[in-house]
Write a protein that binds this DNA or RNA. Structure first.
Lengths: 222, 222
DNA sequence: CAATCATTTTTGGTATACCAAATTCAAAAA
DNA sequence: TTTTTGAATTTGGTATACCAAAAATGATTG
């Protein structure tokens, strides 16, 4: 069991191609051609395209081929704003609802990051970091928050991918994560909010820097 | 222009039937039967069902008929939590980004509510009230917030429908809305937050009361 | 040469046919 | 009578055929 439906498989394949740049923004997704290329019929391909549209990766146009979305800087920025707000809310709720076991797990993730920060691949480490943040969302014990957080993280994959390549300040990340875990253990909402605001402020700045760089690069190539 | 696609029309029809109780929770949605009933084929019906699944109104089960969802009290409560957080964030952003024209429109909506509160149908008035709140989300000038707000409001339609039948305190609503508009005009984030927290606290309580009543009613009928 | 209109082609939307998995129900055996 | 098994039916998943609208192409006319 635990199988993935055909449309989901197709969606995953397409998602990969889009995020890796094989299908650059603006590319048309013709359901007939793409279906033939993957050896499936139009029906599941159609459904896969709807899934990606829901995720914001492709844009549906009435009576026109769907195209790969080109998220504007503002869109990404808006998403970051909401992501940060969600994480702050998560942490507040987690201070009340998180179990001790969950906090232990979070601390373990933090220790893992601490010990492997220098040796691991920066991209892998970024994934672990995002796992840390998603764990916070889950610890809110509010399924809507956890789900939205997941969605936003997926939509921000490309921006995160770019941001992950930058060298990150190990001390800063570890110390900030530690402050968050300690505040959680103490069930201290005020301290937790201070800690996560400091941490997320850096995330915000990192992503904005990447966006600015990309915008400049785009100008130069014109 | 402004046409609605066939799947959207079907989805709207089904949504209506579900929310009005014609299709109670637990009902199976057989795509063949439902398609025939509406005189369309399975393909658009299938797509309509996916739309409703995305909205959380129906649950898809692998290799089984989709069924009308029965949102648990916790789910609704979780949604209200996020809705409230989004509105608070909206208001903060609106203090910075809202245009004077938008604030004027908001004030006009408020005046309309003030003058028609007693005469209009309570349900209509509740719709206007929700329009007021969604306007706040739009005034954040953050499309992600506006979209999420819309989605949550749709998912909470039933709870809102129930809550709308209760007699509401005119003075309270008008005064609270007025405080919000005034804070916006003054671009005063702190006052705005105080005002909306007071207002949303009542919304939260209203919905929780309805949920408790429904839970009790469910117990009795068992 | 440019513009416009008709024709052909492309493409998404819809209907339908086919298949496989799952459920149901009846018959047979214990 | 109860349980088991297998055949028939139901139902979602997939493939394909058809249609209408939109786009592209090209010919014709000013």
């Amino acid at each position: 069991m635990a199988e993935e439906t055909l449309p989901e498989q197709i969606a995953r394949q397409l998602r990969r191609d889009i995020l890796r740049g094989k299908l650059p923004p603006g590319t048309t997704i013709k359901e007939r051609d793409n279906a033939a290329e993957l050896g499936v019929s139009r029906t599941p391909m159609r459904e896969a395209i709807r899934i990606l549209a829901q995720e914001g990766l492709v844009i549906l146009r009435p009576a026109r081929s769907p195209i790969v979305a080109q998220p504007s800087i503002k869109e990404i920025s808006d998403q970051v704003t909401v992501l940060i707000a969600l994480e702050k809310l998560s942490l507040e709720l987690a201070c009340v609802h998180a179990t001790e076991a969950e906090i232990d797990d979070l601390a373990a993730t933090m220790d893992y990051m601490d010990q492997n920060f220098e040796t691991a691949d920066p991209l892998d480490m970024f994934e672990v970091d995002m796992g840390f943040h998603h764990a916070l969302a889950v610890m809110s014990h509010n399924d809507v928050i956890a789900e939205l957080h997941q969605t936003l993280m997926e939509r921000l994959w490309r921006a995160r991918y770019m941001a992950a390549r930058r060298r990150r300040n190990r001390e800063r990340v570890i110390v900030q994560h530690g402050a968050i875990v300690n505040a959680l253990r103490a069930r201290d909402r005020a301290s937790a909010l201070v800690a996560i605001e400091a941490h997320l402020g850096h995330l915000d700045r990192d992503i904005r820097n990447v966006l600015e760089q990309e915008a400049e690069a785009a100008l130069v190539t014109k």
